[in-house]
């Protein structure tokens, strides 16, 4: 079976937010600016953005982040009602009928990739399983995203991964073999990103968008 994945080239990314908007449109995810009345944001794809260095030699890093389809997803392990599973093709599946919106998965995910939607259900990127190409890849105006079969040696995506030009984003040892990035000079030291305090803080900020956990760990 094919192993589909996404590579995002951060050198080409112009930070235009098209992937974010197109993801929301194509999955009918509620759009409403966060404010005092709507404290939570709904998203399958969001950005982690942070600064490094001191003025004037500062770098600003920017990663469009979505579910990386971990090899051994912690969300599946911790879901108290087994509403999350892996499909045969390895893509994470959330059973909306079963999900009770307890929020454990979203809270525990090291990537902050899950969220609780406005209907109180967990949701996350499934690489657009019902489309031939994920919406974010298809519409990226900067040509910064590639989609293809990582097990097909002739596919461009597998070539950049094999050549280690594209690298996985590994947080808390959550091995994944489907979502890769080509770092730009702004993301120097990609492999040790996890140890970067600014990155950790930026990632942690995403948790502010989650309602309080209602389940029991």
């Amino acid at each position: 079976m094919s192993r589909y994945g996404i590579v995002t080239d951060l050198n080409r990314c112009v930070r235009c937010r098209t992937c974010y908007v197109e993801c929301k449109r194509s999955h009918d995810i509620l759009a409403h600016p966060r404010d005092d009345h709507h404290p939570y944001e709904y998203y399958r794809l969001r950005y982690v953005e942070w600064e490094r260095g001191r003025y004037p030699t500062v770098k600003r890093s920017f990663i469009p982040l979505h579910c990386v389809q971990c090899d051994e997803p912690i969300c599946i392990r911790f879901c108290p009602i087994d509403a999350i599973s892996k499909r045969k093709d390895g893509i994470i599946h959330i059973d909306r009928g079963e999900c009770n919106g307890c929020g454990v998965c979203a809270m525990i995910c090291p990537y902050g990739a899950l969220y609780i939607d406005h209907e109180n259900k967990a949701d996350a990127c499934d690489l657009c399983v019902d489309r031939s190409i994920p919406a974010c890849v298809e519409m990226c105006p900067a040509g910064a995203k590639l989609f293809g079969d990582l097990d097909d040696p002739d596919d461009k995506i597998s070539k950049v991964v094999k050549a280690e030009i594209a690298k996985p984003l590994i947080i808390k040892s959550a091995e994944n073999r489907r979502v890769f990035y080509i770092p730009s000079p702004n993301e120097k030291g990609w492999e040790s990103l996890e140890a970067d305090d600014a990155f950790k803080q930026a990632l942690e900020k995403r948790k502010k968008d989650l309602p309080p956990v209602k389940g029991i760990l």
């Binding site: 908007v21 409403h32 944001e41 953005e49 600003r60």
Partner: peptide, 14 residues
């Protein structure tokens, strides 16, 4: 614009 005003203006600042 309720899509474009949703995310931070920049810098992951809500």
């Amino acid at each position: 614009d309720r899509y474009l005003m949703e995310d931070a203006i920049e810098g992951d600042c809500e």
